[in-house]
Design a protein around this nucleic acid. Structure first.
Lengths: 247, 247
DNA sequence: TCAATAGTGTCTGTGAGACACTATACT
DNA sequence: AGTATAGTGTCTCACAGACACTATTGA
């Protein structure tokens, strides 16, 4: 078929963000209150339109900064900011009742933050446990429904995060720049919803080259014997992986 | 910001296809010859515009059928058609010199096909070894460059396929409905570019519940002792995974 | 006969899971 | 003291990799 630029249908393109963190041992997602129709008053994932001359990942980083003040990881500045990656794209006709919108969802893994002050347009923002939004793993129905198809997007993001902990060192993205082995273990436990043996976990993560680098000091912020502080190492892929229990 | 439907920038949305197969022990991708500017005469990935009321995956399946005659896997018809899944989305401004185009790339894994007759618009279509397009794993430069950012898309698709063979049973998507253990092993060897021990491979795949189901007969089409025929089982996830050698 | 592929058995090293035990803090 | 968490050592089982050996075809 000959190329005709005026013949293609026009789409709106947005980025939606699945921002995940671990707060007080709970695996939480960032949701914002919608201030307008449709779904006025509902919780939704943060997001917004991609601008005319803007890269997709740039748009995602901009929305993230606007809505949370978080800065995405600059390649090069090791312990600063959150992990950002593309998740998937959702473009069913009718997913937005107003018009044809294709949304490129992104996944953000962030350390625990003081308070998610909604930057500008959103009427409110808060962290909400993912179990409450998706239904606990035990098949319960979600107690909160999100606007549009955001439950599906969140579910995909949560599953991506859970599986990435297995074969990458991304769990450290949920931790502050310096953290203990116990704190890292609590991240895995919160995200996977399981209990892990502290002794085997310690042996595994400290024995994997490049995963953890000793940062020097110790801390007793978790109580008990002082624990060594680490920061994330250079390795991004875990080999062999750390598999989720309960096959 | 108040919602203003006329304020969003208009994008064109396309689907591009990374169609992979194994032909004569070579890992190959489907490329089509471009008949128009820009990149007239270059090889490119098949693809096209998403229609106004069309789902993304539907658009990908339609383009696949138009350009190859292949039908994507209908959930429910086990041994028919190819595996189709979303890969990633590419939307850099300037990736298409004519206008702002966001492309939702899809990955297709297909069994070996007789000949990729270009369906309609494309000036020609052929299977090309991925090493030739991406440069052999040994750092060689690609001997053929694709149009637009299709080298990058192809690279992402190839890497996705390689890693999916590890923890899923998708290798069977490269095989005919009935196949032998040796044929399945040659798929792994071609995709990963390695040699695998036939005895250990046999023990591994036949010992994984749900991966292979005996289909009854035997064949000698590979020469040597007759080999049992199998078809793909119900299992989609491999646990434990089949890891690539050469860490 | 040989060459090819299919399939089984056996050994060894690595690593995960279970768990006893010691170390060092706070109350 | 008791309780919390940190960290080490040890045992066992599962499994990947290496490879000897047998089975069954065609040339």
């Amino acid at each position: 078929m000959p190329y005709d630029p005026s013949a293609f249908p026009a789409f709106a393109v947005t980025v939606d963000l699945v921002v995940l963190t671990v707060r007080r041992d709970a695996f939480c997602a960032l949701v914002v209150r919608r201030g307008e129709e449709p779904f006025r008053g509902w919780w939704a994932l943060p997001g917004g339109f991609v601008r005319k001359d803007e890269d997709l990942v740039t748009a995602a980083a901009r929305e993230l900064a606007e809505e949370t003040g978080l800065h995405a990881q600059d390649p090069g500045s090791p312990p600063a900011g959150a992990h950002l990656e593309q998740l998937a794209t959702y473009g069913d006709p009718g997913r937005d009742p107003r018009m044809r919108v294709v949304s490129v969802a992104h996944l953000v893994l962030a350390p625990d933050l003081p308070a998610p002050t909604a930057g500008g347009d959103a009427g409110g923002a808060r962290w909400m446990p993912v179990d409450q939004l998706l239904g606990a793993s035990g098949a319960g129905a979600p107690s909160e429904r999100l606007a549009f198809d955001h439950n599906r997007i969140l579910g995909d993001g949560v599953e991506r995060a859970r599986s990435k902990l297995e074969y990458s060192s991304l769990a450290a993205a949920f931790c502050p720049p310096q953290f203990t082995v116990g704190e890292l273990r609590r991240v895995y436990e919160a995200v996977w919803g399981v209990s892990l043996d502290p002794r085997n976990f310690h042996r595994k993560v400290t024995g994997t080259p490049g995963f953890l680098v000793p940062a020097g000091g110790t801390t007793t912020r978790q109580g008990g014997r002082p624990a060594q502080l680490f920061r994330a190492g250079e390795a991004t892929l875990l080999n062999p992986p750390m598999l989720r229990p309960e096959v």
